[in-house]
Design a protein around this nucleic acid. Sequence first.
DNA 1: CTATAACCGGAGTGATTCGCTCCGCAAGTT
DNA 2: AACTTGCGGAGCGAATCACTCCGGTTATAG
Lengths: 224, 224
Amino acid sequence: MTESKRRGPRQAEAERNDRALLRAARHVLAADGEHASVAAIAAAAGVGIGSLYRRYRTKEELFQRLAELSLDNWNQAAERGLAEDDPWEGLASFVAACVEFGQGSLAPIAGTIKVTKEMQAKSDRSDELLAALVARAHQARVLRPDVTVVDISLLIEQFGRSPALDQLRKQGREDLVEAAAGAHQRVLTIAVDGLRACHPRPLPGDPPSDRLFTERWAHETGQA
Amino acid sequence: MTESKRRGPRQAEAERNDRALLRAARHVLAADGEHASVAAIAAAAGVGIGSLYRRYRTKEELFQRLAELSLDNWNQAAERGLAEDDPWEGLASFVAACVEFGQGSLAPIAGTIKVTKEMQAKSDRSDELLAALVARAHQARVLRPDVTVVDISLLIEQFGRSPALDQLRKQGREDLVEAAAGAHQRVLTIAVDGLRACHPRPLPGDPPSDRLFTERWAHETGQA
DNA sequence: CTATAACCGGAGTGATTCGCTCCGCAAGTT
DNA sequence: AACTTGCGGAGCGAATCACTCCGGTTATAG
């Protein structure tokens, strides 16, 4: 074999484990918050602690990678949404994709993430993409007129976790996890329908400031 | 004074502290999940650890009291909602009251609560009250026809916590807490509007099973 | 088959945090 | 002043944390 990919006998298993780790980290982070332990993450992924530490030198490094993946997922979902013809469906599918990924699971560790220049660029791009999605929906008059970009972000964060799902998963009730996921989808559908332009009454209070997001992330710019 | 109430020189301070403790416990539980420490709760309430343990013999006893308060609040809110003339306003105000109380903050400790006969009675009553609220809204044709009692419960649980609010509170950014609370209200208004009967399309998936709730609470019946 | 390289799992380690106790002190009452 | 009641937090053993280290296992090469 002259392939440049395979570098070891158990490379395939290693890649599977890596994916399982990142997925498990989201779930455990959602269930346990910022105190989520590496032991719990490794156990949820079905791998040993040693395997986790071979890939990520520290817990922070794993979380950093998770934050990067989350931003990538956000941007990809937004691009797919903009590629759709229907402005409403584009926005709705974007919200659904972010929720399904579990975008809200990293809220508890937001303050511990180092914002590198690379991350900052991705974050800026995510702001632009969401603004474009919202503007397009407003122009098509399918989105409630006083809904802002921040409202959408908060809605995604609010639904980015499911307390019922988290707890059932931790209890090991895998039989109910699917039902809980379906129920979560239902409630999300209800909330998204509340964004439609058919509701005449204005939203209460002032439009929310984006400081509700910017102030929650660390701003020390390390190196990429 | 022949009053039977005052039993000591600092009784008033003690009552204030007790209220502050219960309030702080909800906030810390929301922010830290099931691993919330008594030290964090006492600090958030502005009292010493000793004062906490004089009122509650163990951490579990405090959580137990919190669960009882939560059920009481639920039932009182439901009764107020039924007392309103407008079926829609009655349901909406019930949901808002439960969300504001932070009903969702005890989801992480649901599995650790002992269900006494007293609690079970209150829980049964809460089921009846919510069913009545929902049935009345359905009969008035103001509630989306395929919305069930479980959907409403999940919506309340979903909004019973605000990740942004929790994190800002933990960071001590009291200046932004008010703004975050207002923003949370906005998003809740959006979601509740999604419950209105004006949405013709059916909800996805099967109606959710109430096992999503019953299976998450411990069932060992201790004594009241 | 054997040898070897790559990767695995988890027991062990020092440091930290946990729930909880105990006690000296402050604040009211008489 | 004497006394009662509640206060705060230092300190304790136990539990848990992030992380290291190494003997075992699996897949390929010869």
